[in-house]
């Protein structure tokens, strides 16, 4: 699904990713953990194609294609979805209208006809249930006046509607209280699929109590310095990131 090899990237003159490699197969959930400033969000943005991030060397293949040369909207239409850490507000544009435009852009890309408005409405109402979202939110402007938790739920709703093949979840747990966290995690779990891969970027272990990953990777200094199973996350929770840094220094 996704094969990243020796990826180097910078913002301006600041080199952030320094030889990152990662291999994600269909259906797998990978958690990427690491201290602040280790390059977690940069990885998400580089994969989604955000302006301002320059890849200096290395590659990222998505379904065998070079992901890094595609425009952001083409990556999206090909099935790459980024759940934002800080979802933006689009005043005056209803959530429903926005979802419909995004969904139809995807269908158009696949050569399918646009979905009828009535059918689409039923479709998104069904999806809203996945994240226990009041249908009234569909008529409100995108993220405008939403609480932190509502914004994150809205991200997962979009994921449910767009049904990506590769979902990048950037600190989806940040700023959530425990009830909101359960709802968001529940939504993501319902979207687990043998054909869908998830890369979960998180600072804390607690999200992994609800979404059990197949692999856990520790990102530090722009590289993956340790990989393991879900137990690695528990160890990190208990002992912090210091011991990995020490281990790295010793090596």
């Amino acid at each position: 699904m996704l094969k990243i090899t020796d990826l180097h990237a910078k913002i301006g003159d600041k080199v952030i990713l320094k030889g990152l490699s990662l291999h994600v197969k269909p259906g797998e959930i990978h958690a990427i953990m690491g201290p602040n400033g280790s390059g977690k969000s940069t990885l998400s943005y580089v994969l989604a194609g955000r302006d301002g991030y320059e890849v200096t060397s290395g590659s990222a293949l998505y379904q065998g294609q070079d992901l890094l040369t595609m425009a952001p909207e083409v990556r999206a239409r090909e099935g790459v979805f980024l759940a934002f850490q800080y979802p933006v507000e689009i005043p005056g544009v209803s959530n429903k209208y926005f979802l419909k435009a995004a969904y139809n852009a995807l269908r158009k890309h696949r050569g399918e006809p646009e979905m009828d408005a009535g059918v689409f409405l039923k479709f998104i109402k069904e999806k809203a249930k996945l994240v226990e979202m009041d249908p009234a939110f569909l008529n409100r402007s995108v993220n405008e006046g939403f609480s932190g938790g509502e914004k994150k739920r809205n991200e997962i709703l979009q994921m449910a509607v767009l049904e990506p093949k590769l979902a990048l979840l950037d600190e989806t747990d940040s700023g959530l209280d425990i009830d909101a966290l359960k709802i968001v995690a529940g939504g993501i779990n319902k979207l687990r699929d043998p054909k869908r891969s998830v890369v979960l970027v998180t600072h804390y272990q607690r999200l992994l109590d609800y979404i059990v990953p197949d692999f856990v990777h520790v990102l530090s200094g722009g590289r993956i310095v340790k990989s393991g199973g879900k137990d690695l996350a528990l160890q990190l929770e208990k002992e912090g990131y210091g011991w990995i840094e020490a281990e790295k220094a010793a090596a």
Binding site: A48, G49, R50, D51, G52, A71, P72, E73, R75, A76, R77, F81, L82, F84, P87, V88, I90, F98, A101, A102, A105, L106, H109, Q158, L162
Partner: peptide, 16 residues
């Protein structure tokens, strides 16, 4: 830029 990127990440062209 963040609004534009958000919409493009959902599959919309720059123009749309």
């Amino acid at each position: 830029e963040d609004q534009l990127f958000y919409l493009r990440q959902r599959g919309l062209s720059v123009e749309d």
